[in-house]
């Protein structure tokens, strides 16, 4: 167990290991997406209240979940890198940011498009949408801070502190936004409540969630590999890998 952990912390080992793993992950992601889309678009029944717009939720809910999930991964790996000074943890943390921002953005867009037929307007200051807007800003801040430093090590550590501060704040922000929302809009809008879930709808949602999860792992791996190449350029194995000789 521990040797495995140490190996994972070595960029070289991770790069070689992920070279073997990556094709599998790509295939699994693709197949899960195909299955999920088939279930969600073709086979699942619809909610009698929401009609076919409920099909948007199959891509919206997993995106929202993964947006949060990626932030948690980013903050925890950032904290691990900060405390134990593990290079790999920082690389993963930094690579999470843009994938997570993408998920959050997709959750916002699909939420807004879903809102048009449901609420009659694209944007509503609904608690969940507002929280996700703020989450998106947190991602932007993280990426901007990391880009602002010339030295990658300083950037990693500073961004990790920000990610942890953000992680502590997310529940508080979420709570305050919920509270603010109930104060101002009361019970007039309660349409985001879960539609009555049939088994086939739940199946479609879970498959899509798995697909997003694997997409996250695949995209993260690709980014981490690219990051490793740049950061380890002065170590022999990268040079050997890139130029194909051992000069």
């Amino acid at each position: 167990m521990w040797t495995w952990f140490y190996q994972l912390a070595s960029p070289k080992w991770f790069y070689q290991f992920s070279t073997r793993l990556l094709p599998w992950f790509r295939w699994i992601t693709g197949l899960l997406f195909l299955l999920g889309l088939a279930l969600g678009l073709l086979f699942s029944q619809v909610d009698y209240q929401q009609g076919n717009t409920v099909r948007i939720l199959y891509i919206h809910v997993p995106a929202a979940f993964m947006g949060m999930f990626a932030y948690v991964v980013m903050a925890i790996t950032g904290a691990i890198g900060f405390v134990w000074r593990i290079k790999m943890a920082h690389i993963v943390s930094v690579s999470c940011a843009s994938v997570g921002a993408l998920f959050t953005l997709l959750a916002l867009i699909t939420g807004a498009v879903w809102g048009k037929p449901t609420w009659g307007t694209y944007w509503i200051w609904d608690a969940r949408l507002t929280s996700f807007l703020i989450l998106f800003f947190l991602y932007l801040g993280f990426m901007a801070l990391h880009n602002a430093f010339d030295d990658k090590k300083t950037a990693d550590r500073a961004a990790a502190v920000l990610a942890i501060v953000g992680l502590v704040n997310i529940p508080i922000i979420h709570f305050s936004v919920e509270w603010w929302n109930t104060l101002h809009q009361g019970a007039t809008i309660s349409k985001f409540e879960k539609p009555s879930m049939d088994a086939d709808m739940l199946a479609a949602l879970l498959v899509m969630l798995a697909a997003y999860q694997f997409y996250f792992l695949t995209a993260l791996m690709q980014r981490v590999r690219a990051e490793i190449l740049v950061r380890e350029k002065l170590s022999g194995w990268v040079q050997k890998l890139v130029t194909g000789n051992n000069s």
Binding site: L41, G51, N52, T53, R55, I56, I59, H60, A63, L106, I109, T110, V113, W114, K116, P117
Partner: peptide
């Protein structure tokens, strides 16, 4: 009747 919304969001994703 909701084709536009469903397909727009799927296209974005």
């Amino acid at each position: 009747g909701h084709g536009f919304f469903v397909w727009t969001s799927y296209a974005f994703c």
